[in-house]
Nucleic acid binder design. Structure first.
Lengths: 217, 217
DNA sequence: TGATAATTTGACCGGTTGGTAAAAACATAC
DNA sequence: GTATGTTTTTACCAACCGGTCAAATTATCA
């Protein structure tokens, strides 16, 4: 009897781990650029270099692959915001948050697009995660920001929209990559665009929030 | 002989115009939330309240509907940037550009999501539009911004990334609407969120670009 | 080595999908 | 009325899609 995913040995074999990883990597490729419904198992199988039934031996359904990817992604997604430290000072905390998020757009664009796709379609698979853990985390960090404002370390502003604007501007470079490249043209669309973006965003947010500037009482 | 779309009369009849409009509206609904491949003709037909073959009498293929929507959308999409006036002053021009883009996110979220979907999938249908007309327009406006900076009316910054950041922050409220609502919670997710966003973004960009502030020579 | 379990394959299935054909139903002009 | 052109419907098809099954192949280990 061939029960998938090694029910007998319980411990996953080397070959299982490798194949599952290859499948998830291929699936991330396809899902992130075609969305859930736009992706076929055959496409994933082809990218992963195996037959469809073989792939389905490791993941029983298309949904199972997608679910696994979303779970992994959400975890790393919340990570930078977790690191936001109430005891740090606003300047370095916000600055490094922006930098980290931008690095994620540069290094994990597929994950960003997978997330964007999911949200665009109305977040059918992760609505609970958004309303639960994500909201809780943002609420917590918004409170931190509010405290900084009260302490006069930051310009008065809506903490939620501040967070939204950091998400939007940084993820833009992953999600709208094609557009960014098209507009910048070949000459400026190299890897340097991320450093340019970092410089610009730092300036925008730092002086936009009047961090380190004591003008206007 | 029944040639679709009135080849004989040449002029489109009232009934044709109405039906085509209904189809496009329904298609915008479905395409914007499911992407091209994720959308079925049957879904569009059902939302439009007609049978699939009847729908295909007005648009011969799924692609034809999609193409029509994208063309229309691109036109209105570039409109606010067109309005960017070199002879105006930076403060009011940028301020009103942000306001307009945000209004578009509020009033035409489906169009925004249609565009986002297309870009996410690598812009297969509009790559030429991006590299041609869009790039040309942005190049032109970037030059305007550069001139403002040279004239000391604006903080020194990369004009392209300035434009990107306005796109990103404003469109975020349409494309990531589900997430925004989830995070804000029921209490704050009403229509007022757009006014909050407008206030916040105005502050961010106005003081971020040091418009009207003469600190630091 | 052989026995046993894990992996891979090819053939297949029912449902869906984009799209067609032809004729029925409807509108319009004379 | 009838003739002509337009719109809608019914029935259909071939390709595709997610997933199953049983048999064949390969790895593991006593």
């Amino acid at each position: 009897m061939a029960v998938p995913r090694a029910a007998k040995t319980q411990r996953r074999t080397r070959i299982q781990e490798e194949k599952e990883e290859r499948i998830l990597d291929a699936a991330l490729d396809v899902f992130s650029s075609s969305g859930f419904r736009g992706t076929t198992i055959d496409q994933i199988a082809e990218v992963a270099g195996m037959s469809k039934p073989n792939l389905l031996y490791y993941f029983r359904t298309k949904e199972a692959i997608h679910r696994t990817l979303l779970e992994r992604m959400l975890f790393t997604w919340l990570d930078p915001l977790q690191a936001f430290d109430a005891d740090g000072d606003p300047e370095s905390e916000i600055r490094s948050y922006i930098r980290r998020k931008l690095e994620m757009s540069r290094d994990f664009p597929r994950e960003s697009r997978l997330f964007a796709n999911e949200i665009l379609q109305g977040a059918p698979h992760i609505e609970d995660e958004l309303k639960g853990p994500l909201k809780a985390l943002v609420d917590e960090k918004a409170e931190v920001i509010r405290a900084w404002i009260k302490a006069g370390k930051l310009a008065r502003c809506d903490p939620y929209h501040l967070i939204f604007s950091i998400w939007a501007t940084t993820q833009h470079y992953a999600d709208f990559d094609v557009q960014v490249r098209a507009v910048l043209g070949e000459r400026r669309a190299g890897e340097g665009r991320f450093e340019d973006a970092a410089r610009y965003l730092e300036q925008l947010f730092m002086s936009g929030l009047k961090i380190g500037i004591q003008s206007e009482p």
